[in-house]
């Protein structure tokens, strides 16, 4: 199978994720969409690694996974504490960080 198709899939997944981040308000959904974008990138890295025949892409994919795992830990913790204090998981309600 032509590895370019994996890239198409990665692009599709990324677009879905990005759209989700932009249009959904629920923090959990936004968070999942971010994960989707990260994994789309991973897929693209692996596909490129295969296409160019070197391992750099795969190593970066592992990196991304580690970072994503760490991010999940921190991100979910933030969302939970946000929900606890404001009784809402909407990202638009948390707009205090402005000048």
């Amino acid at each position: 199978m032509n590895p370019v198709n994996y890239l198409y899939l990665a692009a599709l997944l990324f677009t879905i994720g990005a759209t989700g981040v932009l249009i959904r308000r629920n923090a959990i959904v936004v968070f999942m969409c971010i994960e989707l974008m990260l994994n789309a990138c991973n897929l693209a890295f692996v596909a490129f690694s295969r296409m160019h025949g070197n391992l750099d892409g795969q190593i970066i994919a592992f990196f991304t996974m580690v970072v994503a795992a760490a991010e999940v830990v921190v991100g979910l913790a933030i969302i939970v504490s946000l929900f606890r204090t404001r009784h809402s998981a909407s990202v638009d309600d948390a707009s205090l960080m402005k000048l």
């Binding site: 990005a18 981040v21 932009l22 249009i23 308000r25 936004v30 990202v91 638009d92 948390a94 707009s95 205090l96 960080m97 402005k98 000048l99």
Partner: peptide, 17 residues
């Protein structure tokens, strides 16, 4: 320019995209 900092995470995301 300060107005751009409206605190909405999604509008920041739009500008990043």
């Amino acid at each position: 320019l300060r107005r751009l900092q409206n605190g909405f995470a999604r509008s920041y995301a739009v500008s990043m995209f």
